[in-house]
């Protein structure tokens, strides 16, 4: 297989506090291929946003990357200087965040922000940059782009603003777009529009997408592969269709069953007992073991490695270990 666009290896992110060091990410590894859409799901606090922040070098101090490596097309980027990282952000990795208002500066027009970003990363004239900006806005579906480009962010509605942010993220032709909950702040009827725009335009330009969301439905529609995080660890990763229809990790199985759907017939939802442990109280062995219906002795002692299940699928669960123990046959 070709060299991946982004490769994350055994990433560890720690937050020192006075009550000990919290491990927000614990040995997370995954790849993103060229032009691929990787979905990243998990409950709040599972570490999905921190993974994104680590990749673009924006972990808030005192948090820090305490181990592992991040490679972007063969270049190691987790140990770059802030200055070098700034050049990668925007140019090689575009970003779309949950709240469009935080990504746009309210004091500048959309044109000023787009043109400045384009010209920071590309050596072209102001006029060419403006033409490019208008074309981009048009492409993300802003009506009368040539006129509206001179408006300020607050002149746009929520959905339109998020389209502007997408244009801003893509204006320097990045190789990877990091979208952290891009639709969470939007109305249901607008969410679908935004996801479509993001997916289409990235496919057109061959940009890979890392889509962080808690909404399994968005992942199902958009992603090629999905990574499921639990308590800062990767539980399962694999092609979307397989993970959704035939989840292997008991946590993923529970998660999928607990989502009410428009077609389900049963009266009760599948529920996982308890809740995700806090970072200061992660149990020994598998982090999911106290809630797992298929738990056996080994789960309480050893932390499961990601087990290769073939077809680019990995599951961190002892159930799938070759030397499955007797007690595991439940």
């Amino acid at each position: 297989m070709a060299e991946p666009l982004l490769s994350v290896r055994d990433l560890i992110v720690e937050f020192p506090t006075r009550r000990g060091t919290l491990r927000a990410l614990d040995k997370v590894s995954f790849d993103i291929q060229e032009g691929e859409v990787l979905g990243m799901v998990g409950e709040s606090g599972a570490g999905k946003s921190i993974t994104g922040a680590a990749i673009i070098g924006l972990i808030e101090p005192p948090g820090r990357i305490a181990g592992g490596e991040i490679w972007l097309r063969g270049q190691r980027i987790d140990n770059l200087s802030p200055e070098a990282m700034r050049r990668i952000r925007g140019k090689r990795i575009g970003m779309v965040f949950q709240d469009p208002l935080t990504s746009l500066n309210p004091l500048y027009t959309v044109a000023q922000q787009l043109i400045e970003t384009i010209r920071t990363h590309m050596d072209i004239s102001e006029k060419a940059a403006r033409a490019r900006a208008v074309a981009l806005l048009d492409r993300v579906g802003i009506p009368a782009a040539a006129r509206r480009i001179d408006d300020y962010p607050h002149h746009f509605s929520g959905g339109m603003r998020q389209r502007v942010v997408i244009a801003l993220a893509l204006c320097a032709e990045p190789e990877l777009v990091l979208a952290d909950e891009p639709t969470t702040a939007l109305d249901v009827s607008v969410q679908a529009q935004i996801i479509d725009v993001l997916k289409e335009i990235c496919a057109e330009r061959g940009a890979a997408v890392m889509l962080i969301t808690h909404d399994m439905g968005v992942i199902a529609e958009t992603a090629d592969r999905v990574a499921v995080l639990y308590a800062g660890r990767l539980a399962e990763i694999g092609p979307v269709r397989e993970v959704i229809t035939a989840a292997e990790h008991p946590y993923t199985q529970g998660l999928m069953g607990s989502i009410p759907t428009l077609t389900q017939t049963s009266d009760r939802l599948v529920q996982i007992p308890g809740s995700m442990p806090r970072l200061n109280a992660i149990p020994q062995g598998c982090a999911f073991n106290p809630r797992c219906p298929k738990v056996f002795d080994r789960c309480r002692v050893d932390r499961p490695e990601a087990i290769d299940r073939g077809g680019r699928r990995r599951v961190a669960c002892w159930l799938y270990d070759g030397v499955k123990q007797e007690a595991g046959n439940v």
């Binding site: 009827s189 679908a192 399994m216 439905g217 529609e221 959704i244 759907t261 428009l262 077609t263």
Partner: peptide, 11 residues
């Protein structure tokens, strides 16, 4: 329209 906008989990 609202119904159409619900993401399809059943793939």
């Amino acid at each position: 329209m609202l119904l159409d906008a619900v993401p399809d989990l059943a793939l």
